[in-house]
Structure formats: C-alpha cells, structure tokens
C-alpha cells in the first residue's frame, strides 16, 4: 500500500471506522503474527497476542500521530504485549515453554512426507533447526532480530522503539546471529 493510501486508511481508522480497522488487520496480521509467534513460542499464545494487539490498536489509535512509520507504533504494541506476557509467565514460574515455535504453519512440526524431494526436505529441516535455535536465544536478543525480520523497520528505528542505543541493538543482533550460525553449523 502506498503512503497516500495508508494515510487515508489511518485517518479513517482514527475515527474508529470498522472497515478501515478491519483492513489494517488484514494488511498487518501476517507479520504481527509471525513476530508474536516466534516471541511467544506457541500458536495459542500468538493468536491471543494477535487479537490483543489489534484490540489495543482500536482503543488507542485516537492518540496515534501519523508522523513516523505506522509499523513502528504497531510492532511496539505487539512486542510490549509479548514481553508483558513473558514476564507474567516467568513470575508464575512458567517461563521457557516453547511448545511449537519450531514448526512451520501448523501447531506441530509437519511430519516428513515420503515423496518430498530431498532438497525441500533439507530446506524444511534447516528451517526447523533455525526456529529451534531462535527459541534458545536470550529474549532481548531474539526480540531485536525478529523485529528486524518481521517489522521491516531499520535497526535505528528498532533501537528507538526499544529505547536502547543503536550500538546496543546492533551488538545484540550481531551476537544473536553469530550464535545462531554457530549452532546451525555444529548441527550439520
């Protein structure tokens, strides 16, 4: 969607136009879902977080000022909700449960298909290893690289969003990616 189209959509959304808000859900839910799924580690939690994120958008969009990127505002809400949920789970002693975030589109990793071409099988397995490796990263490091991957914001915008210096954001991302790469090569 071009800038003018988005401006108009957000203008209508600020007036609580249900169609405009529905369109925002349609446009952004795949990326928001990807982020919260990889942050929360389970499909059920991600679905709850997706709904909470967009409900929060409806409640506070009247106060949103469209001066920067809408993504920065939207993904900040999603990341904050995911972080709050993780904190609550930790307080209740439920931290570290990642039931299915190394799967692809289903609730559980898809079983191997007998006639799946070798190359596709290899790619799928590598993807699952990558997803599993992501779940083992420290939360703050994982959050930065996932925000970069799903929100498509620059590292500078992500650093602003998280209230950390750019150098810190980059250092965390660098460390996380190096660790991921090391783990993947060790498994091969």
């Amino acid at each position: 969607m071009d800038r003018t189209g988005l401006d108009e959509l957000l203008r209508r959304a600020r007036q609580r136009d249900a169609d405009a808000l529905g369109r925002l859900v349609e446009l952004y839910s795949p990326r928001v879902f990807g982020l919260v799924y990889r942050l929360a580690g389970s499909r059920d939690a991600a679905e709850d977080l997706l709904q909470e994120t967009f409900l929060r958008v409806v409640r506070v969009i009247g106060e949103y000022e469209h001066v920067g990127k809408f993504e920065a505002w939207l993904f900040r809400i999603a990341a904050n909700l995911a972080r709050d949920r993780a904190r609550k789970r930790q307080r209740r002693g439920e931290g570290g449960v990642h039931d299915d975030a190394n799967g692809a589109t289903s609730a559980r990793p898809a079983p191997a298909v007998a006639d799946e071409p070798a190359e596709a099988l290899e790619r799928r397995e590598a993807g699952e290893r990558l997803a599993a490796g992501l779940q083992r990263l420290p939360d703050a490091d994982r959050e930065i690289i996932l925000l970069r991957h799903y929100s498509e914001l620059s590292f500078r915008e992500i650093a602003d969003l998280l209230h950390v210096p750019l150098g810190t954001a980059l250092a965390r991302a660098h460390r996380a990616l190096q660790r991921l790469r090391r783990e993947l090569s060790a498994e091969e």
């Binding site: 839910s29 997706l50 990558l130």
Partner: peptide, 24 residues
C-alpha cells in the same frame, strides 16, 4: 540477517483471523 530468510513461514489460522476481525 539473510540467515532468517530460511525461517519457515507462519500464518494465523483462518478461524483466528476471522475471530480477530470480529473482535476488532
């Protein structure tokens, strides 16, 4: 960051999306 291009795609289930749309 190119490493993350290998991450499997995830999408909300259609019934989840319908529920979110209705709630919104």
């Amino acid at each position: 960051m190119g490493l993350l291009r290998g991450l499997p795609d995830v999408a909300p289930r259609p019934e989840c999306l319908a529920r979110v749309q209705a709630a919104v």
